[in-house]
Write a protein that binds this DNA or RNA. Sequence first.
DNA 1: ATAAAAACTGTTTAAACGGTCAATAGTTTT
DNA 2: AAAACTATTGACCGTTTAAACAGTTTTTAT
Lengths: 252, 252
Amino acid sequence: MRPKQRQLKIIDMLRRTGRVNVDELTTEFNASAETIRRDLSVLAHSGKIQKVHGGALLPSNQQGEGPFQQRMAENIAAKRIIAEKASKLISAGDTLLIDTGSTTLIFAEEIAAIKDLTVITNSAEIAKIIATVENNSTVFLLGGKYNSDNRQTLGAMLIAQLEQFHVQHTVLTVGSLNAQVGAADFNAEEAIVARAMLQRAKNSILLVDSSKFNSAGSFVVGKLEKFDQLVCDMEPDHVLKMALKEAKVALI
Amino acid sequence: MRPKQRQLKIIDMLRRTGRVNVDELTTEFNASAETIRRDLSVLAHSGKIQKVHGGALLPSNQQGEGPFQQRMAENIAAKRIIAEKASKLISAGDTLLIDTGSTTLIFAEEIAAIKDLTVITNSAEIAKIIATVENNSTVFLLGGKYNSDNRQTLGAMLIAQLEQFHVQHTVLTVGSLNAQVGAADFNAEEAIVARAMLQRAKNSILLVDSSKFNSAGSFVVGKLEKFDQLVCDMEPDHVLKMALKEAKVALI
DNA sequence: ATAAAAACTGTTTAAACGGTCAATAGTTTT
DNA sequence: AAAACTATTGACCGTTTAAACAGTTTTTAT
């Protein structure tokens, strides 16, 4: 394992747990304590972390409640790759609809630096991420029944509000993607919201990591034709790839 | 657990409660009293806290980080008293409208334990507090333009949503209160939202600490007659007291 | 005034740090 | 393909830090 990789992983662990210990990391990476300390020194020097005796913490400016979903999220590396690719599709001044999800959360971090955005979302966490950065962006938080698990709002009120918007991009994540049914979720209410968002945008971007391929959620968000761009971390299999081509979905 | 981390948590606890005790902290962190005292000494030396016998307090002139945190720190003790008194007015099963403010935030913490509430608010922070506790409560988060300073939503969209509700209690805080103009805010948009909330409830509760008496905000929320109950930490002066009696506002 | 609780001080032990250096792995040059 | 070079790693070891223990002093409350 290369130092860069380790250091990225260390940051991800930190974001999840809030602290890391040197000896934890030595067993995690099968490396000596000195190597770990060297990594921590590098990260500390560039301000990414804060070194303390025995390990490291998040720097004090982002200490406290980090993106909570990220803590429980799997596959962070893959999701970050996806989010980074997707962020290239967005330019300064764009208007976006973003739904709730661990991948869209990381996506929000990636685009937070882009200027003059207008972001409309039902995720309190995403709203916070975008609005906290000084970049002249505007955030609309959609109202509705509040769900503490994901810090998102849902329900009929939200659908009504969506009708007041028409935007350039809708950015969605879903629980499953396959050639026959298209994109589908495992939660009915989230699927309804996603479907509504899909209708309010000129361009629709779907973010999925490879673990979602060919599983089958029960609540359909939309067929493949409904989407314009699919961003993922790995090549889908042949069947799905052909189906995407058929549906004129750009693969990124 | 590392010293830095403990110290950060101690400050966090202080900001929430206004005071910490050494023995509380020893059980909290499973550390000896000396260790805690050392932490307190470090924090006191850097001016973050103020040591007293048995524990520590927030320093009298708190140099806060953000405007939000700063206002939270002012008068915490008074605000907690107010919030506790006000929480007695709420029963299980009630439906409430709550606006954004540092006092209502503490109020939300106090009522979080009450069961079967329905809470409607424009504060993402209050929504989180109520929804995180397991108490069978429902939270509606009102949508609108998101303001990162206070983690609240504002704007025309929000007013429209409010019309869909009619509740038992509206709980408000304002920036100023005096006999002539009544309750007023220093921010136009917040005042508009407060005024709209006031119209959607049978009973209206106003929370103000004594520092707000007889100052004058520019944006009127409502005359004294509009309110049913006023909760504060100290007796108002005679003029205001008579005016309240005249306006049939119960003083708590 | 006196007892109890809490704070301070110095000491001890174990763990963690940081610097140097030689060995190894990966990369580039010849 | 071999050689030279660079980056990375792990071990050694004196130094620093953290935390508990014990004894003493101060503060608080009765």
